[in-house]
Each structure stands twice: as C-alpha cells, then as structure tokens.
Amino acid sequence: MTTHVTLEDALSNVDLLEELPLPDQQPCIEPPPSSIMYQANFDTNFEDRNAFVTGIARYIEQATVHSSMIF
C-alpha cells in the first residue's frame, strides 16, 4: 500500500520535528556553519599511474562482459 505525501505535508512534518521536545535533555547537534574551499588540480602526472590504469582496464573489461550479456 503506497500513500502519497505532498511536498507541503512533508515540509510541515519537518517543522513539527523541530518543535519536538527531547526527553533525555540531549542538545540538538548541528555543526557550526563553515565555508568550503575547493581547488581543482588538473595535473595528470599521477603518483600511482599503474594502479589507475589497472583500475580503468578492469572497469572496461567488466563493462565489455556486461554488454555481451545483453541480448
């Protein structure tokens, strides 16, 4: 049995959870807001190039085997 919940109902349920008292006096655990800095590195000089090539080769081999299973 599947029941459909609207977005408004789901959001109101989340709002109700925020008002729910914690019986064991545990604080609400939330991390402090912080910014994330991402720096992309496009250097293709891999430290472990052989492991990378082996991983790709295994992926391609598995993809080939799976593609041959499709009729």
Rank of each mutant, 00 (worst) to 15 (best):
L22Y: 06
P23L: 07
F46E: 00
V65L: 14
E8V: 07
P32T: 13
Q62C: 02
Y59R: 08
L11C: 08
E18S: 12
F42T: 02
H4P: 04
D24M: 02
L11Y: 10
E18W: 13
T54C: 04
E19F: 09
P32D: 14
L16W: 06
M69W: 15
Y59T: 04
P27I: 03
D48G: 03
T64A: 13
D48E: 10
T6Q: 09
R58V: 00
E30S: 08
I29Q: 09
I60C: 03
C28H: 07
Y38A: 06
P21W: 03
H4M: 11
T6A: 11
V65F: 12
Q39A: 10
L7W: 14
F46T: 01
D15W: 05
V65Q: 14
Q26K: 04
I56L: 13
F52A: 10
L11F: 12
D15E: 11
C28W: 06
V5C: 03
Q25G: 04
F52C: 06
T44C: 00
E61R: 07
E8G: 08
S12D: 07
S68G: 12
T44M: 01
P23S: 02
H4V: 14
D9C: 08
R49S: 05
L16V: 10
Y59V: 03
D9H: 14
F52V: 13
F42E: 00
E61Y: 02
Q25F: 02
Q26H: 00
R58E: 04
I70Y: 15
H66M: 13
M69N: 15
Q25D: 06
L20I: 11
H66Y: 10
R58N: 07
A57T: 11
E19Y: 05
Y59D: 03
L22T: 07
Q62V: 00
M37Q: 09
V53K: 11
Q39H: 08
S34Y: 05
P21L: 07
M37Y: 07
V65M: 12
P23C: 02
L7R: 15
T54L: 10
R58W: 01
T64G: 06
A40D: 03
Q62S: 05
L11Q: 15
M1R: 13
Q25E: 01
S68K: 15
A40K: 04
D15H: 09
S35P: 04
V5T: 12
P27K: 03
N13V: 14
G55P: 03
M37R: 09
P31I: 05
F46G: 00
N41F: 01
I36H: 06
S12C: 03
Q39T: 08
V5F: 13
L16G: 12
V53C: 06
L20S: 10
F42S: 01
M37T: 11
M1T: 13
T54W: 04
V65W: 11
S67Y: 14
V53E: 10
D48T: 08
G55I: 05
N50R: 11
E18K: 14
S68D: 14
D24R: 05
E30L: 11
Q25V: 00
Q26A: 02
E47N: 07
F42K: 01
A40V: 02
L20E: 11
Q39K: 09
V65G: 05
I29P: 02
V53Q: 09
E30P: 01
T44D: 01
H66G: 08
S68T: 14
A40N: 02
P33G: 03
F52T: 05
Q39I: 08
A10D: 11
E19I: 08
T54N: 12
H66F: 10
P32M: 13
